[in-house]
Design a binder for these strands. Sequence first.
DNA 1: AACCATTGCAACCGCTCCGGA
DNA 2: CTCCGGAGCGGTTGCAATGGT
Length: 350
Amino acid sequence: MGRAPCCDKANVKKGPWSPEEDAKLKAYIETNGTGGNWIALPQKIGLKRCGKSCRLRWLNYLRPNIRHGGFSEEEDNIICSLYISIGSRWSIIAAQLPGRTDNDIKNYWNTKLKKKLLGKQRKQQQARRSTCLTFKQEMKRESENYPVPGMVNQASNWPLLPPPPVMPQPSTHQDPQDSIRNLLVKLGGRFSDDHPQSTTSPMNFRYAPDVPFAQYQPYENSMNILPSASSLSPLNSTCSQVTDGTTTQFTVNDVDGPNDVFQDLDVFQAELSELIYNNNQQILDGFEGFYGTDNMVDGSSTGTSSVESSSWGDINSLAYTQIVPGFEACQQQSIPQVPTYDESAYFRPQ
DNA sequence: AACCATTGCAACCGCTCCGGA
DNA sequence: CTCCGGAGCGGTTGCAATGGT
């Protein structure tokens, strides 16, 4: 037995709103307000619409000061940074962009922003792939000379690696109002350096909207937030390996300890581009496919839904593959069903 | 010009949260 | 404390507009 519908589905109109309906709804709300009861509102004004539909129409379209389209670079940055830090919590993101609705931002992300970012990445991947081909051939030659039955990517067979890419350095000035950080704290988030005693993971921030403001709970299994790419040098991270005979488990450690998040908003855009530029095709394809968070970093369950896992997995893949050299290789080794990827040659366990 | 594919956006659906009884 | 109903949210769908062949 399901829940009773909020309205009589047979007697409500669906689909696009007519100008007359818009005018009725707008006039009533501007005069009387919503009255705190959307369900009853359509009957009051003689609209054959579901209350939820009225609410949506008002919030997304009729409400004063609504802006549609024409997102600025600054807005792009805010959306990206918040998406990475708090995921697809569109209403929270929208709250930081005056005049924007959650629906608008959601649509903008899904239809433009994501593609825009991934488009850059694909170009870079093509360039990088050709470089990798050389290493692939090297590896193949070497494995033919020194075959190890049943073992792939064993450390002793790894080719010498090119030096890691030079990361953009953060600007030296410290932005006094780290707006994103402040926002997240304001929303009830937590940073590792705010609560040193709770550094159970190297980067243990997670936005926790379900936790009342200032009541922080440990999120030991939570997904880690993307730290400033430049604040975490690839050289300062290690990836330890434990093999149980059937699968290989990797753990990412940042030897520098807890890291602040979003150290400098000014370099965010460059960093984001850098992140995306430097990811492999498999992670990229994760946007269409799926990587659950259960397969992330420590392999522990996060308790998130599959849908949520997908989002966080995607974004955190982007983050970690940049932060930790060879993170993609970690992923592939702990997810045996994922086909082997040539660029694993870039990773060498320490 | 016609057809098909893609894109963008408005709207819907179903779920969770939350406050009041 | 439990239940119920409304509000709010995020994912998904439907369709018109646009672009490509």
